[in-house]
Design a protein around this nucleic acid. Sequence first.
DNA 1: GATTCGTGGAG
DNA 2: TCTCCAAGAAT
Length: 350
Amino acid sequence: MNQDTFASRLIEWYEYHKRDLPWRHTNDPYHIWLSEIILQQTRVKQGLPYYQNFVKAFPTIFDLAAAPEQEVLRLWQGLGYYSRARNMQETAKAIVNQQNGSFPNSYIALVKLKGIGPYTAAAIASFAFKESVAVLDGNVFRVLARLYGLETDIATSKAKTLFSTLANQLISSDSPDLYNQAIMEFGAIQCTHSSPDCLLCPFQQECEAFLTGRQNILPIKSKKTVIKNRFFHYIVFHVQNRIAMRLRGSKDIWQGLYDFWLSENDSILDTDELVKQLDLDLSDTIYTIKAPEKAYTHLLSHQRIEARFWHIQLEEVPQSQEGLTFYTLEEVEQLPKPILINKYLSEHFF
DNA sequence: GATTCGTGGAG
DNA sequence: TCTCCAAGAAT
């Protein structure tokens, strides 16, 4: 099967099977960029409502650049990998300030931007500007590994070079946009990770994996992420209709989002032990403390967090407490928060 | 090159 | 419950 046959048969499959997705109806590089950032490591079903919300809230790159970071993160809430949102806005500002709002229009220029790597640069360059540069994402790795029976570990940089070279040989220079959309859609719908639909596959006769019965072992990926266990002891300070929230800093999860006063330990503490750790000056303050009723388990891709929430009711807002600010419930609702915090709040306050 | 960044869904 | 993954990028 030569290159043109593969590309044309793939695009033919795509035209018949493709899903109707909003970012496939625009040539606006800003909207395409939005969709690509949102869809990084994210399923279409999960990302779609976020795309619609962002387009509505920030119709142009100028709107996004002008927005407060907190507003952007609040709209991103629940999607995860929050550095995507922060980097996206940083890049929006850079494009507005340095390029007068006009989007860079080549792979080389795009890949230099914060939050835009090889995949996203290729996607934007091909979709918005018809540049003939092949995308290489999880779908493409899977489709090509199976079609050519490649057992190279796709976690390695060698594989990245190999698959990228191959993808760029297969791309249709006439329709690089359609080709890139098609190969990803093919991986997402037909050549899926588990139980691919090989019986109706247009490449059944040429697929090395199918011919040798290796659909279920290809592609080969060595990496297994080690899960770290963490124990969070949150104290929720509460005064009338106000709750103390804390902005999370860098070098840990949830940067730029808000949670509560936190004590992290390598094991579970009881209330007495936690109060001892409580370095805050509550000696002259009247308060009641309520121990947690249950534990919340929150799973991240690389961490397993076991969180417990203590509730401390105060008579009045304490004078000075480092890093803690009291917000009304209405204000808390508007702050960007991790799903774990949001879940606790919705069960106890909202 | 290995790690660190979320969350939800499938099997 | 466990594993893997889903239009990756930054450090």
